[in-house]
Design a protein around this nucleic acid. Structure first.
Lengths: 218, 218
DNA sequence: ATTACTAAAATACGAGTAG
DNA sequence: TCTACTCGTATTTTAGTAA
């Protein structure tokens, strides 16, 4: 991703291209970026080809909107600036408790993970995870976590397959300690997994759809 | 300011170059930016020449820190992203009441300003201003205001001199309506002026050094 | 080890212009 | 009008290398 492509995306976003299709001519766009109509046109072509924006050229007017991939790029940038200027040691993440697939429990039963969590977090987590689904402003905070270092959990091999690495962050939900897990080699997701020494669901009386707020240590 | 220079500044900032001198080789810097050592070296030369960073090359290790001008560039970028993702209609600005130079009152007595404020804000402001000095996180919010459109106050000529244009934003301090004024053609400042229908100083019993919080409408 | 010069290669740019 | 092509020029990049 080249700097001038990020700048171009940013300008489209500032016109409202994150939420809806926006219209502008390539000449106008050029003067926003401080380049010629021709270069602006090329930027739009490049961004389209690489899947960062979608275009509908209807009649005269051109309609441009950022794709999810395009928005992601900007969210990542935003997260960088948050780290620079808000260098917070703590971050509040809110989201909705999503129904798990029981998958989390499978992973948490693996010795390779169990041992690492025990060693790095100081406790052996309950065999099960909560899924926290974030939206809006919290997606940007999630991005801050993705950029941040966190506590490393290494990948390992067991039973003939690989179990991927992850990083985790200590957090508190109410008065209960827990940890946020972010898989290392995964594509973008609006959902993170929470683990804790306890069965958070029963201990805090949670059910799917509940709104959760946690403060995460960076 | 070229996009790749902004990216370079951002990376220096992420290493901590906003607050203190940081060390890294041009080769390391190059791999951070995804360019060669030679290009990274050139970036550092360019940024130095243009006054965005200061360098001390002592012995082997190089010390780099962003200048005020450099930090400003990034704050402006950050403000853009805030506008994109936080598209807030309202913004909270906090700061400290700074002693005015009496200058504000001079300007507020000018008919050219008085009339425009009366027309655009719906009231004729008290002849005097408060100076609000911002710091830290609020400087970024100030930058959001500078990027935002606001209510235009046009420049005018009177008594053989020009009075510059400005933009203002409706705001509330506690339960009192007021407005934040941002001069259009001025260099960076951490201080904004507040006007109101009332003498805010006496009405709210304010004195220099008091901490103020206002919610500003964008 | 470094940084940064020179020169050649690669890339980006915009004028002209077609569709 | 508009977008986006070609193509000559300008800028940027990097390899090689000096200090």
């Amino acid at each position: 991703m080249k700097p001038h492509h990020i700048t171009a995306l940013k300008h489209i976003a500032m016109l409202g291209g994150v939420k809806e299709h926006v219209s502008f001519s390539s000449a106008t766009f050029g003067s926003m970026l401080g380049v010629s109509q021709q270069s602006a046109s090329k930027r739009l072509l490049d961004l389209t080809r690489e899947g960062f924006i979608s275009r509908n050229i209807v009649a005269r007017r051109e309609q441009v909107k950022l794709t999810t991939k395009g928005v992601e790029v900007l969210r990542r940038e935003f997260a960088d600036y948050k780290i620079i200027f808000e260098a917070a040691k703590e971050l509040t993440l809110t989201g909705v408790l999503a129904s798990g697939l029981g998958e989390g429990a499978f992973y948490m039963r693996q010795r390779g993970y169990k041992e690492q969590f025990a060693r790095r977090l100081g406790y052996e987590p309950y065999e099960g995870t909560l899924n926290l689904r974030c939206s809006g402003k919290d997606l940007a905070n999630l991005e801050v976590l993705r950029q941040a270092e966190g506590i490393q959990i290494d990948e390992f091999r067991s039973g003939g397959r690989m179990f991927g690495g992850a990083k985790c962050f200590r957090a508190r939900m109410g008065s209960v300690d827990c940890a946020v897990i972010i898989p290392l080699r995964s594509h973008y997701s609006d959902t993170v997994e929470l683990i804790s020494k306890f069965n958070l669901r029963t201990r805090l009386g949670l059910s799917d759809g509940d709104s959760l707020e946690l403060s995460v240590l960076l």
